[in-house]
Computed example of a mutant assay.
Amino acid sequence: MASKKTPARQAQAGATLSEYAGVRYLHLGTEWVQGAMRVRKPQHIELEYVQRMMAWMLWRPTAELTQGQAVQLGLGAGAITRFSHQVLKMRTTAVELNATVIDACKLWFHLPDDDARLTVLHADAARWVADPAHLGTVQVLNVDLYDHEAAAPVLDDEAFYACCRGVLADGGLMTVNLFGRDASFERSAARIAAAFGLDQVWHLAPTKEGNTIVVAARGVVVPDRDTLIARAEYIRERFGLPAPKWLRLVRPLRLPA
């Protein structure tokens, strides 16, 4: 997670944790939850909105679900990174500005050490996606960047989303968590659509907590309904994720006239 101010200039809040009913929660100096892990099931994705950030799987052929590179911008409690690395077995990169979050994930949230398929970077997400070395190298990009008070997305302009599209390979997919007391879904979604094209952007209905997940693609052809239903069932059976529910909740993005 990061801050609403320029990342390089901002003092980072220290990571802390709480635990209740077998679930460990990550905080950044406030009561706002920045991530969670069920202690006895560390590879399970605990929070519903984080599960929905895996909805990119519906747009990807089942034979390709475990192929390529997955990148997470904003480590949180490491749920997506652990799932991509340990369950999907993808080449996985996480980019996190706050060093205490990385330390907390290693100490408390079962984040493994870097290996041939895992790289955790203490770095600025905006700079990472703007680096020409990363153009066209990513199949899956998960964006969950919030300040310690969860007020609004940290990086939320058209230039940032254009860079996100740039790092995606053809057929690549991005999911973004849009949530925040000061955030505007319509404003953020319009910026994503400007970068990706309106016909390449979808969203899920909000969770009860108010998180709305947007899916944006680079050159994806949407399959027919029967194919999507079959994919959703495969994801549920193979990976234990509630993909059939996602399919009922997803809609093409429509912007106000």
Rank of each mutant, 00 (worst) to 15 (best):
residue 4 K to M: 13
residue 5 K to R: 15
residue 10 Q to Y: 12
residue 14 G to K: 12
residue 17 L to F: 08
residue 22 G to W: 00
residue 23 V to R: 04
residue 24 R to L: 00
residue 24 R to H: 01
residue 25 Y to A: 01
residue 31 E to W: 02
residue 32 W to V: 01
residue 35 G to A: 04
residue 39 V to W: 01
residue 40 R to G: 06
residue 40 R to S: 12
residue 43 Q to E: 14
residue 44 H to W: 08
residue 46 E to P: 01
residue 46 E to H: 02
residue 48 E to R: 14
residue 49 Y to C: 04
residue 57 M to E: 11
residue 57 M to S: 10
residue 63 A to E: 14
residue 69 Q to F: 13
residue 69 Q to I: 13
residue 69 Q to S: 11
residue 71 V to A: 03
residue 72 Q to F: 03
residue 75 L to Y: 02
residue 80 I to V: 14
residue 83 F to I: 12
residue 84 S to Y: 10
residue 85 H to W: 01
residue 88 L to N: 07
residue 90 M to W: 04
residue 90 M to G: 02
residue 90 M to D: 07
residue 92 T to W: 01
residue 95 V to R: 02
residue 95 V to S: 01
residue 102 I to A: 11
residue 104 A to K: 05
residue 107 L to F: 03
residue 113 D to I: 07
residue 113 D to C: 10
residue 113 D to G: 15
residue 113 D to Q: 15
residue 114 D to W: 10
residue 115 D to T: 05
residue 118 L to V: 02
residue 120 V to S: 02
residue 121 L to I: 13
residue 123 A to P: 09
residue 127 R to I: 06
residue 127 R to E: 13
residue 129 V to G: 09
residue 129 V to R: 10
residue 130 A to R: 11
residue 131 D to K: 05
residue 132 P to V: 05
residue 132 P to W: 01
residue 133 A to V: 09
residue 135 L to M: 11
residue 135 L to N: 10
residue 136 G to Y: 14
residue 137 T to F: 13
residue 138 V to K: 04
residue 139 Q to T: 09
residue 141 L to G: 05
residue 141 L to M: 07
residue 145 L to Q: 04
residue 150 A to I: 10
residue 151 A to P: 06
residue 154 V to N: 14
residue 155 L to I: 12
residue 156 D to R: 13
residue 161 Y to Q: 03
residue 163 C to L: 08
residue 166 G to L: 06
residue 166 G to Y: 09
residue 169 A to F: 03
residue 169 A to W: 08
residue 172 G to V: 00
residue 176 V to L: 10
residue 177 N to H: 07
residue 181 R to H: 08
residue 182 D to L: 12
residue 182 D to Y: 09
residue 183 A to P: 02
residue 183 A to M: 12
residue 183 A to S: 09
residue 184 S to P: 08
residue 185 F to D: 06
residue 186 E to M: 13
residue 187 R to D: 10
residue 190 A to M: 04
residue 192 I to L: 10
residue 193 A to V: 10
residue 196 F to V: 05
residue 199 D to M: 07
residue 200 Q to A: 05
residue 201 V to H: 04
residue 205 A to I: 00
residue 208 K to I: 11
residue 209 E to V: 10
residue 210 G to T: 02
residue 211 N to E: 09
residue 216 A to K: 05
residue 218 R to N: 12
residue 218 R to E: 06
residue 219 G to C: 13
residue 219 G to I: 02
residue 225 R to Q: 13
residue 226 D to T: 08
residue 226 D to H: 14
residue 230 A to N: 06
residue 231 R to W: 08
residue 233 E to R: 15
residue 233 E to N: 13
residue 236 R to K: 14
residue 236 R to V: 00
residue 240 G to S: 09
residue 241 L to K: 04
residue 241 L to P: 01
residue 241 L to I: 11
residue 243 A to Q: 06
residue 246 W to G: 05
residue 246 W to H: 01
residue 248 R to T: 12
residue 251 R to W: 00
